[in-house]
Structure formats: C-alpha cells, structure tokens
C-alpha cells in the first residue's frame, strides 16, 4: 500500500543522504521525495512517498526514527490528510489546437504561464491522480516536457507535525 511519510529533519548537510541511503541500503522503495526548509530554518520538512506491506512500512518508520537527524515523523496515510503535487507541463500547440488545450487547462483548473507560437507551459496542482489524468488527456507526442514535484501533504484538523 502507498504511504506518505512526512518527516521533520535537522536542516544539516548530509541529512537528505542519510534518508536516501537508508532506503537504498535496506531495499525500500522511494516513489518520490520532496524536501525544503520550514518556517524554522534549522528544520527541513521532507515528504516521502513509498509503498510496501504493513510490516515494511513499520520498519521504514522505525528506521527513519532511528536516524539521529530525524526529529519527528508521521505516516499521513494513517489519518485524514490532504496531498498536493505541483506539475509544470510544456505542451505543443498549433493554431488548430490552442483552444482545445486551453479548454483542457481550464477544466483541470490549471494556469497557462508561458506562451510561444508553438507551445504552452501549464502550471497545475492537485492530487497526483488528477495530474495523471490531465497528462493522459493528450495525444502521444503533444507533450514536450513534464516536471512534477512529487506529492507533499498535510494532515487535516488542528493537529500538526511540529516541535
């Protein structure tokens, strides 16, 4: 099963490689990983999407907690949460297709943020499945480039992952 693990980690050089190294050394799978500093510059927030049996996920969270740099973590999949992913897509356009692409972007509530004679760059956020659906809505060959951030997430309600 897919899990989103959200980690507060010391913002130290090498902290990211400790996490990445743990996954490769123990043969766990990382689907995506995002990391950025938080409002407290000494802490980074990492969102990691992984999958595995309950036993494997239990080991993953235990092993992550064991890393000295990891301050706290939660498995977002255990409770109600919101997840979003940012995607930037460069799409081929022509005189004939521009309108259709624009309509698609509107349906998915994206934004066109760059326009040339032959292309659009579209910005879109949402659940990963929505971004997948948008991509699949285009014919093969019409997409020049896709850049995705990987999902980030936050729990619903007033409780939060903080110190």
């Amino acid at each position: 099963m897919r899990h989103i693990i959200s980690i507060l980690i010391e913002n130290e050089s090498g902290a990211l490689s400790r996490v990445a190294g743990l996954f490769s050394a123990r043969g766990y799978n990382i689907e995506s990983l995002t990391v950025a500093p938080t409002e407290d510059p000494s802490l980074s927030r990492m969102t990691l999407v992984t999958s595995g049996s309950d036993e494997i996920i239990e080991q993953i969270t235990k092993q992550l907690n064991k890393l000295i740099d990891v301050v706290k973590l939660i498995d977002l999949a255990e409770s109600a949460h919101i997840e979003r992913e940012l995607m930037l897509v460069k799409i081929k356009t022509s005189h004939d297709t521009r309108e259709e692409v624009k309509r698609m972007v509107d349906i998915f509530r994206g934004k066109i943020i760059d326009v040339t004679a032959n292309s659009y760059v579209v910005e879109m956020t949402g659940q990963s499945s929505k971004l997948d659906a948008f991509i699949h809505g285009f014919e093969e060959g019409s997409i020049i480039e896709v850049v995705r951030s990987g999902p980030t997430g936050i729990s619903r309600g007033e409780k939060g992952l903080h110190l």
Binding site: E55, E58, Q59, K62, Q63, N65, K66
Partner: peptide
C-alpha cells in the same frame, strides 16, 4: 532498547 529491532 531499539524499537527497530522489534518485529524486524
């Protein structure tokens, strides 16, 4: 003492 050793 190591939770990761339990049920590994």
């Amino acid at each position: 003492v190591d939770p990761a050793s339990i049920s590994k």
